[in-house]
Design a binder for these strands. Structure first.
Length: 458
RNA sequence: GGCUCGGUGGCAGAGUGGUCAUGCAGCGGAUUGCAAAUCCGUCAACGCCGGGUCGAUUCCGACCCGAGCCUCCA
């Protein structure tokens, strides 16, 4: 089965073929570590985590790099505001970012290059660009000359002349062309800086990705991912830097996720309409957040709401409930992924909503299945869950757990269930129902079955 | 203004040139001491207008509406 990927460059789905037959290199734009990640920032992380898992089922070597931008104007500003050192700020938010993403069941990337550890590579790249006539020094800055690249704008479908027509930006006087962008800029004394042929300074925003990809993954990588808003200028400029410096292809497949909306508007830090992952984790388990993020296709906007999270929670609860019914069944069967509808769905440009629908279909089959069919169905559900990064918990623990501690402990609940059982034996159904109601009022749902009474929070 | 991308049932959200998405919610039934879970059945959509087609939500064109990028942002 071949993986189809929608390539922003070209605007259509293509069969994915890595440069080398059994190796895939993938790079996703990571965080600028100056504050907490919001749930919109988590979307690419979760989406590309699914891709990472999927690729690993097909290729022996998958190298997935996600950078940490730890030098940036916003970081400097954040450090100044909180009267802390740059390092204190970046270390704190790097650690918190890793924790938050781990709680969303995102696997750690293979590599996590830091911008500040790769300054030499950036300087070298800048020197190459100057030597080849694609960059120039001006008033202490080094700028990339967009006019030196004939097909600049190809990724975003822009033409330099058109961009000028609508330009609203004041053009810095050190630029030859308004579209020229900074590779290296001078650092003030109190700002972080590194010695370079152009004096003490620091890199421009776009430079780090090009330099680190080249340093850690090679001149040409297979997949580069990120949010849609990075297409221009960030990724366009990365292409310009890398292709002009090294020639050849930079990235074979560009993938861009759509954003999360709040009331039809993009969730963003600048609009202030965001929820941090950390905040949401106070109320919802990471797996619920993850499921919610996967409930829409990654290229479609996803309207974020509490209803969405509640639906995600309900869906996961129902899957875990199905799995609880078969929790004692041993797995000694092997799933043939190639035959699986959910696998087919994921291979079609990561169609996670369809994969989830197939998971519902599997659950439904499980409910009707004869005993002999259940081990395979369970294995298939878990295999699907594994690729989506969900359903790996103990079902009982999931159903009885939760972020918001209930009013009752498990022991207290068991005690009430026993009391109710006794009432039932005494034919005191009114008493038994009273206990059911009492527990329900405290968020505990009882389910009677031949095997006794099960409970869950819900 | 330029460049992108969208508009699917009450909600979320896939997909397709011709009887089915799926989930949640609703309605009816089975089951249950009562419930829950589950099962069966059921309601309901494809922005608007035109064009081609035997037939379009799906293709083409215009229009309306929305979002994003062009400035830090996933």
């Amino acid at each position: 089965m071949s993986l189809m990927i929608y390539n922003t460059l070209g605007g259509r789905k293509d069969v994915f073929q890595p440069l080398e037959p059994n190796k895939v290199t993938m790079y996703v734009c990571g965080p600028t570590v100056y504050n907490l990640a919001h749930i919109g920032n988590a979307r690419p992380v979760v989406v590309f985590d699914v891709l990472f898992r999927l690729l690993q089922t097909q290729y022996d070597t998958v190298i997935y790099a996600r950078n940490i931008t730890d030098v940036d104007d916003k970081i400097i500003a954040a450090a100044r505001e909180s009267q802390r050192s740059i390092e204190a700020v970046t270390e704190e938010f790097t650690a918190k970012y890793r924790e938050d993403m781990a709680r969303l069941n995102a696997l750690p990337p293979t590599l996590e290059p830091h911008a500040t550890h790769n300054i030499a590579a950036m300087i070298e790249l800048t020197e190459t660009l100057i030597a080849k006539g694609h960059a120039y020094e001006s008033q202490g800055h080094v700028l990339f000359a967009v006019e030196s690249m004939p097909d600049y704008g190809k990724l975003s479908g822009r033409v330099l002349d058109d961009m000028l027509a609508g330009a609203r930006v004041e053009v810095a006087d050190y630029k030859r062309h308004p579209g020229d962008f900074v590779l290296w800029k001078p650092a003030k004394a109190e700002e972080p800086g590194w010695d370079s042929p152009w004096g003490r300074g620091r890199p421009g925003w776009h430079l780090e990705c090009s330099a680190m990809i080249r340093a850690h993954l090679g001149e040409t990588i297979d997949i580069h991912g990120g949010g849609r808003d990075l297409i221009f200028p960030h990724h366009e400029n990365e292409i310009a830097q890398s292709r002009c410096a090294h020639g050849g292809d930079y990235v074979r497949y560009w993938m861009h996720n759509a954003y999360l909306d709040i009331d039809g508007e993009k969730m963003s830090k600048s609009l202030g309409n965001f929820h941090t992952v950390r905040d949401l984790l106070q109320h919802y388990r990471g797996e619920v957040l993850r499921f919610a993020l996967l409930s829409a296709h990654y290229r479609s906007p996803l309207n974020f709401s509490f209803e969405l999270l509640q639906q995600a929670e309900a869906a996961l609860g129902s899957f875990y409930s199905t799995l609880r019914d078969v929790q004692d069944i041993e797995l000694d069967v092997e799933v043939q992924l190639e035959d699986e509808p959910f696998y087919r769905a994921l291979n079609d440009d990561l169609n996670t909503p369809l994969a989830i629908a197939e998971l519902h279909a599997l659950a439904k089959q499980m409910h009707k299945a004869a005993a002999a069919e259940k081990p395979m169905l369970k294995a298939r559900m878990l295999a699907a869950g594994n690729l989506l990064g969900i359903l790996a918990q103990d079902p009982e623990a999931w159903l009885q757990g939760g972020v918001e501690a209930g009013e009752l402990s498990a022991e207290e609940i068991e005690e009430r269930i026993n009391a109710r059982q006794q009432a039932k034996l005494n034919r005191d159904y009114a008493g038994a129902d009273a206990i059911r109601e009492e527990l329900l009022a405290k968020g505990v749902v009882l389910e009677d079955s031949r095997d006794g009474t099960k409970w869950r929070r819900g």
